[in-house]
Design a protein around this nucleic acid. Structure first.
Length: 291
DNA sequence: ACGAGAACCTGTTTGC
DNA sequence: TGCAAACAGGTTCTCG
C-alpha cells in the first residue's frame, strides 16, 4: 500500500502522539503478520519513551529509551489510526477524534498502543503483509530488514552519478530497476510510473540505456514527484488515510497511474494511457510520449 | 549472480 | 443476481 510519501505522511500524523511520549499500555491482538511479534513485545514497549520517530525507505522507526527501536512496515494494506483519549483534542497541527469505545477491537486491528499524549494508536492490516518488531538500535543497519536497502531518494547523496552507476549494468526494464529497494529505497508502483511519465521515459526501456543524457531528467522527476506527493499528504486509494484520518490528495494528480484508456495529459500529446504487466505488477504509461 | 514469477492474505471490483 | 476471476500501494523465496 503505502510508498515513501504515504509513510512520511503517517509519520507526521503520528509524531504528536508518539515523539517524546511514553507508552503507557500496549495490547497485541494477533501475531501472525509477515514477521511474528518478538517475545514479550507488549511488555518491552510499555513504559518506554520514544526518543525519535523517523522513516527509512517504507519503514517507520520509533527509537526507544532502552536501546531498542520499534520497526513498523505497513505492507500493502496497513494503517495507523490515532485517537485522543477522553475528548477530541488538538495535538500539534492535527485534530484527533475521541477514541470510539470499539477502537482497536476490529477484526484486523493487530496492535493497540496508548501513550501519555494521551493518545490511542491502532495498527490495522487486513492482508497482514505488514510487520511490527523490535531491533537493537545500534544494530539496525545490520538487520536483515535494512542491510540490503538502497539510497534514500530525497537525500542529496542520490545524484546523477549514483543513478548512472546503479543503472549501468542492469539488464532489466527501467520500471523494475526503480522498484528494486536495493537500488532506491522507498519508490513503489505508483511513483515509479509517475516519475517515468514525467521524465518521458518508456517503462519498457532497459535500465542500462538510461545512463548519460537521460539521467538528469529522471533524477529530477523522481525527487519532484515524491516531494509533490508529500506536500499533498500522499495518495489515498481504497482505505489509506493519514494517521489523523485525513485523506491525502495526490491521487487526483496522477498523470498515468490507474488511468488506462484515458488520454495522455501532456499538452499536444494525443496518446492514450496503456496498462501492461511487468514483473507481475501493473505499469501505466503513455506509449506516445514515453520513449 | 541475476531476473522473472509465485507466494503470502483478505477485501473489493469486474465480467460472464 | 450470483459466482468466479482479476486486481490491489510490498517483500521475499524459488527456480531457471
Amino acid at each position: 500500500m503505502p510508498e515513501l510519501p504515504e509513510v512520511e505522511t503517517v509519520k507526521m500524523g503520528l509524531a504528536p502522539a508518539m515523539a517524546g511520549r511514553r507508552f503507557t499500555k500496549v495490547v497485541t491482538r494477533r501475531g501472525d503478520l509477515r514477521v511474528p511479534f518478538p517475545p514479550h513485545f507488549a511488555e518491552r514497549l510499555t513504559g518506554r519513551k520514544i526518543e525519535k520517530l523517523w522513516r527509512r525507505a517504507k519503514y517507520l522507526l520509533a527509537e526507544l529509551d532502552n536501546g531498542e527501536t520499534l520497526v513498523i512496515h505497513l505492507g500493502m494494506s496497513g494503517r495507523m489510526s490515532v485517537y485522543a483519549e477522553g475528548k477530541e483534542r488538538k495535538l500539534g497541527q492535527y485534530v484527533y477524534e475521541q477514541a470510539p469505545a470499539n477502537a482497536g477491537q476490529g477484526k484486523h486491528d493487530h496492535v493497540v498502543m496508548e501513550t501519555d499524549a494521551p493518545a490511542r494508536i491502532v495498527f490495522t492490516d487486513h492482508r497482514r503483509f505488514g510487520l511490527m518488531t523490535l531491533v537493537d538500535t545500534d544494530k539496525l543497519d545490520e538487520d536483515k530488514l535494512f542491510k540490503g536497502l538502497g539510497i534514500e531518494p530525497l537525500s542529496k547523496e542520490f545524484d546523477a552519478a549514483y543513478l548512472d552507476r546503479v543503472l549501468k549494468g542492469k539488464r532489466t526494464p527501467i520500471k523494475s530497476a526503480l522498484l528494486d529497494q536495493r537500488v532506491i529505497a522507498g519508490l513503489g508502483n505508483i511513483y515509479v510510473c509517475e516519475a517515468l511519465f514525467r521524465a518521458g521515459i518508456s517503462p519498457k526501456r532497459l535500465a542500462s540505456t538510461i545512463p548519460g543524457k537521460r539521467t538528469p531528467a529522471l533524477l529530477r522527476d523522481i525527487k519532484a514527484v515524491l516531494a509533490d506527493a508529500i506536500k499533498a499528504g500522499g495518495s489515498s486509494l481504497r482505505d489509506y488515510a493519514g494517521a489523523d484520518g485525513a485523506l491525502g490528495e495526490f491521487q487526483h494528480r496522477f498523470a498515468v497511474y490507474g488511468r488506462e484508456g484515458e488520454p495522455c495529459g501532456r499538452k499536444s500529446c494525443k496518446g492514450i494511457v496503456r496498462r501492461i504487466v511487468q514483473a507481475g505488477r501493473s505499469t501505466f504509461y503513455c506509449p506516445k510520449c514515453q520513449r
